[in-house]
């Protein structure tokens, strides 16, 4: 079995700060990490590798420094990796990104399974998984929270939906997107780090892929960002202190009154 895991390098949301004056994102000092939700995709692949035996490949599209994300995946136990990077890819929206990723996966393939995280914490669209599936003409199951069984031709999984879970079986090859319930991602080991350093990571640029150049980059993207602005969530918190017994009573009364004014409680 061969499994491809799509991962993205994202800024660490914890260190992302907004400049209150300009309303822009302060990039200085922001470190990059593997999209936290992609770690569950990597973990799923590694569990499958342990249980059923598989060759696992991490695939990432991004600037040259995104190679760090691929190395981190290998340090966690993934067998190999590929970085898809070209200036011509810059500005790609999800359609163009999925188009490029699908071409790369086809070239690196054949794969029995492609696993993606639920979404990336920066773009937050969650569209890449199903879009890759559509582009490759494969079935896809999203929001997978449990891998129930896997055979040569079929996987059975549970997927989380609004009011419960669905159990479905999907023919292979196919695409899964996973949520964090699949299992806590393992940490990279020293052995893994050393292996990652020694592993030759495949680098793919525009010239290495079979792509229609009018479908890539900013120009090939169907969507356009026309405006970015700061949300106007203006809240003024009425804070009451309840740091000892006497104050608790009064604070609770004030809260009750507030809830009544907001019609959360009947007045």
């Amino acid at each position: 079995m061969r499994i491809a895991v799509c991962i993205k390098q994202v800024p660490d949301t914890k260190s992302v700060k907004m400049d209150p004056e300009t309303g822009t994102v302060v990039r200085k000092g922001v470190q990059s990490i593997v999209n936290p939700l992609d770690l569950y995709a990597l973990e799923t692949a590694l569990q499958m590798k342990e249980t059923y035996g598989a060759e696992t490949i991490a695939v990432s599209m991004g600037p040259p420094q995104a190679i760090e994300a691929v190395k981190e995946a290998i340090a966690m136990g993934i067998d190999g990796g590929a970085l898809i990077s070209d200036r011509a890819f810059a500005g790609s929206d999800t359609w163009a990104t999925a188009y490029i990723l699908a071409a790369a996966i086809k070239q690196l393939g054949p794969f029995d399974l492609i696993i993606c995280g639920e979404r990336a914490t920066d773009g937050d669209t969650g569209q890449i998984g199903p879009e890759i599936a559509a582009e490759l003409g494969l079935p896809t199951v999203t929001y997978v929270n449990k891998l129930i069984d896997s055979g040569k031709d079929e996987v059975t999984v549970s997927r989380l939906v609004e009011n419960g879970a669905e159990e479905v079986a999907m023919d292979l090859p196919g695409v899964l997107t996973v949520v964090k319930e699949v299992g806590e991602p393992r940490l990279p080991t020293l052995r893994g780090k050393l292996k990652a350093k020694a592993t030759d990571i495949t680098k793919m640029a525009l010239k290495d892929l079979e792509l229609n150049t009018s479908y890539i980059g900013l120009k090939g993207s169907p969507t356009r960002v026309v405006k970015i602005f700061q949300p106007k969530v203006v809240r003024e918190c009425r804070k009451v202190y309840a740091e000892n017994d006497g104050m608790v009573e009064e604070a609770v009364d004030q809260l009750i009154n507030f809830l009544k004014s907001k019609k959360v409680l009947a007045s």
């Binding site: 660490d12 936290p36 340090a75 990279p188 020293l190």
Partner: peptide
């Protein structure tokens, strides 16, 4: 027994 490496904010936070 095992040595884990954390070299980014996410893994550093975890360890």
């Amino acid at each position: 027994q095992e040595i884990y490496v954390a070299d980014n904010p996410a893994t550093t936070e975890r360890v």
